[in-house]
Computed example of a mutant assay.
Amino acid sequence: MSPFRKTRSFAALLLIGSALAGCNAASRLSQVGMQPPLTTIQNPTALPNYQPVALPMPAPITEERQANSLWRQGSRAFFKDQRASQIGDILTVVINIEDEAKLNNRTSRSRDAAEGASLPALLGLESTLEKVLPGDADASNLVEAESDSSSSGAGAVNREEDINLRVAALITQVLPNGNLVLSGRQEVRVNYEVRELFVAGVIRPADITSTNTVPYDKIAEARISYGGRGHISDVQQPRYGQQVFDIIFPF
């Protein structure tokens, strides 16, 4: 290979590597020796991927007010309900996940097949097979096929998770039936590692306790994410070249 073609191939490899690395590699290089930055506080409804929740709503019901009544419907306090109920109110989401799953699966399969075909007579033309087919052609043993295949597989899953967290969330939307849409994000940086917690979903006002908390299993369409970014998370991830190789390698 000529030096020019070698140089061009090397430049192409560098270009491909740069494209695969993307902006992530550039941002990581700019933060060498620095702590991972925390993101600024933002309005959840102003984020690029934010979309208002639209769910099927029941027919509106007119609230009946009782004359001379000191109590409001759904109130848990004599003077005022302290629970979150309006856009911008804050409540605490209690996440207590104890999940355990065990699964064993085994499959096996085997198959044998054989086929044969002969042509002893064909209008007297069977003797001309030697002229049509190369070599010694035998009409009594014209076609023969055999196949043998077998496969076996085994899989096992043994998972156990225990997560106990509390995160403050913000009411971002009040649906027509009174249900509340919440969104909460928490970031904690310890040395060079940032732990991120995100929770979102739809809750009923009646499921909010008197201490202004709601358990995670009362959240409909719940989206809970707990992870991190930083030096430890970076070491635990395979290099981008290995990830690309695992995707495109067919074997």
Rank of each mutant, 00 (worst) to 15 (best):
P3S: 14
K6L: 14
K6N: 13
K6Q: 13
R8G: 15
F10W: 13
L13N: 01
A19N: 04
A21Q: 11
G22C: 06
G22Q: 05
N24R: 09
S27K: 14
R28I: 08
G33V: 03
Q35A: 11
T40E: 12
Q42M: 09
P44L: 10
L47W: 13
L47I: 05
P48W: 07
P58L: 05
A59H: 03
A59M: 01
P60T: 05
E63N: 12
E64F: 04
E64N: 10
R65W: 14
S69E: 03
L70W: 15
L70N: 10
R72V: 02
G74C: 06
G74L: 02
R76M: 09
R76I: 07
R76Y: 07
Q82S: 04
A84E: 02
S85R: 10
Q86P: 01
G88L: 06
D89Y: 10
I90F: 08
L91T: 06
L91R: 01
T92G: 05
T92N: 03
V93A: 04
I95Q: 12
E100A: 15
R109K: 12
D112T: 07
E115W: 02
G116C: 07
A121H: 12
G124R: 06
L125R: 12
E126W: 06
L129D: 09
L129R: 07
E130A: 14
L133S: 00
G135I: 03
A137G: 11
A139Y: 03
N141E: 07
L142D: 00
V143T: 03
D148H: 09
S152Y: 04
G153H: 08
A154H: 00
A154S: 13
G155M: 14
R159T: 13
E160R: 08
E161S: 14
I163C: 10
A169C: 07
A169Y: 09
L170I: 11
Q173F: 07
V174M: 05
G178Q: 03
V181E: 14
V181A: 10
S183L: 04
G184R: 08
R185D: 10
V190H: 09
N191Y: 14
Y192C: 02
E193H: 01
E196M: 05
I203Q: 03
I203G: 05
A206Q: 11
A206G: 10
I208K: 00
I208E: 06
I208F: 04
T209D: 06
V214W: 06
V214R: 01
P215N: 04
E221R: 08
G227H: 01
R229Q: 03
G230C: 07
D234I: 04
D234H: 11
Q237I: 12
Q237T: 12
R239F: 08
G241Q: 04
Q242V: 11
Q243F: 08
F245I: 02
I248W: 15
P250E: 00
F251N: 05
